[in-house]
Amino acid sequence: MMTFEYQVQPGDFTNAGFASSQVKKTLKQLNVDPAIIKRVVVALYEAEVNIVAHAHKGMIYVTVDNDKIAIKLEDEGPGIPDIDLAMTVGYSTASPHVREMGFGAGMGLPNIKNNVDYLNVKSEVGVGTTVELVVNF
């Protein structure tokens, strides 16, 4: 088992995707099927961009096992008042700046769900959000 931790800098779109990029390199070195790597890093990147876009502090914890990868993203931020609504395609609270970066179309959480084998989103308004996801190899 291997574990990794990454700090996410909210608001910093220059470095958004750094953790996803590192995880991709690691999974490639481990010879994981490229189709599975794509699912993992697309889901992780969407979640990482969510922290950059919405939170004011964020951490990513990655655990790689022989048969799966489990990722937990914890942020301190505004939280999600209605998770079902946030999972709806097209619903977005993103700022104009986030939209200028090519995101904020309300597709992030639904796309994460489509790429993972397990997804759990917990959130408390005014405190933060925790996203846990698992992709089986």
Binding site: F13, T14, A16, G17, S20, S21, K24, P34, K38, V41, V42, Y45, V49, M101, G102, F103
Partner: peptide, 13 residues
């Protein structure tokens, strides 16, 4: 045309 375009390409292969 920004850095996230390239990052998106990286993730999407």
């Amino acid at each position: 045309c920004n850095i996230q375009t390239i990052r998106t390409m990286e993730m999407a292969d």
